[in-house]
Design a protein around this nucleic acid. Structure first.
Lengths: 139, 139
DNA sequence: CTTTTTATTGAAACATTGTTTCATCTGCAA
DNA sequence: TTGCAGATGAAACAATGTTTCAATAAAAAG
C-alpha cells in the first residue's frame, strides 16, 4: 500500500516527513534504526519531527518500536493487510551477526501470567544467528 | 547472600560502588532503574562508574538489564541460588499502573524459530496490570 | 475557491543516557 | 609490602529524547 493511503486509513495528516519515513521502511522492507531511516530520507529528515512522528505513527498503529537493547531501537511497519491490524503480541528475531531484525509474525507465544495478573501486551525478542549468517559461516 | 560474597564468587573485585549497587537491589528486592539505585546509594553514586559497573556485573552474570521500553531500563540481580546461575531465557511482567517490574522466573516460554535459525537467548516482556493494582481498583 | 480550524513543523534549549580517554587510586596476589 | 591489573572519577563527547513556541501546511467548512 502506498504511504498516503496508509496515513489516510489511520486518520492522520499526510505530511512529507511522514511519507518519507514510510517510504524508507517500505523500500528496505525491514525494521530500521533511526540512522538508517535518516540516510534514506536525506533532506526531509529532522530529528525532532522524526521522534514526534514515530510517536504519533506508533500511536496510530502504523508502525511499532522494537527495542533491541538499551542502545538500539528499530522501527517496523505494521502489516495491516488483513483485519488484525495492530496485534499486541510481537515476536522478533535479532541476528547478532548481521544485526538484522526479523518480525516473526506467525509465531505462537505461549506464556501464562500468575493468578490475578492482567496480560495486555507481549513482546518476545529472540537473539541468535539467522539462517543467512548461519549458512555463510559454514561455507 | 551478601554483596561481598557475590562479587568474590564471580571473580570480580570487591569495590564500594559495586557493593552499594548490590545492596540497593537487595534492599528493594525488585528490579530498579538507575535513579532508584542512585537514590539508595547516596554519595557512593557516580554516573560513569555506575554504567561501567552495570556492564561488568552483567558480563560477570551477577545481574541483568531489563529494557522496559526505549526510555526505561531496569536492573535485576540474578538468582544464583541453585545450579542454573545464568539462564538465558528471561520473562518479565511490567505493570503499567505502578511501573513495577516482576521477574517471572518459573514461566515456560514456548516459541519456535524458523528453519535454519539458531536461537541463543530469549526475552519475553509482558505488559499489563499486576494483581496488586488489579485488586486496588476493584475496591 | 477562499476562509477557518487544527495539527504539524522546525528551531532553540534542555534533560537523560551512554561512551571514551586518562591520570590516579585501590584490591589483591605474589 | 610491594607490584600490578583492574577500578575509579573527572572531563569531554556523542546519541537519544522532550518541551516550548512561533510559523506553516493540511483538512474541513463555508
Amino acid at each position: 500500500m502506498n504511504p498516503v493511503e496508509i496515513l489516510q486509513q489511520h486518520s492522520i495528516k499526510k505530511t512529507s516527513p511522514r511519507v518519507a519515513i514510510i517510504q524508507a521502511l517500505q523500500k528496505r522492507s525491514a525494521p530500521l534504526t533511526e540512522s538508517e531511516i535518516k540516510a534514506e530520507m536525506g533532506d526531509l529528515y529532522d530529528r525532532i519531527t522524526f521522534y514526534r512522528n514515530m510517536q504519533s505513527m506508533a500511536d496510530a498503529g502504523i508502525l511499532h518500536r522494537i527495542v533491541v537493547d538499551n542502545t538500539m531501537v528499530k522501527y517496523a511497519l505494521n502489516h495491516c493487510n488483513k483485519e488484525h491490524c495492530h496485534h499486541t503480541n510481537h515476536a522478533h528475531f535479532y541476528c547478532r551477526e548481521c544485526t538484522k531484525l526479523i518480525c516473526l509474525d506467525d509465531i505462537a507465544i505461549e506464556a501464562q501470567v500468575p493468578e490475578g495478573y492482567i496480560r495486555e501486551e507481549m513482546e518476545l525478542l529472540i537473539r541468535g544467528i539467522c539462517s543467512h549468517c548461519n549458512t555463510e559461516h559454514k561455507a
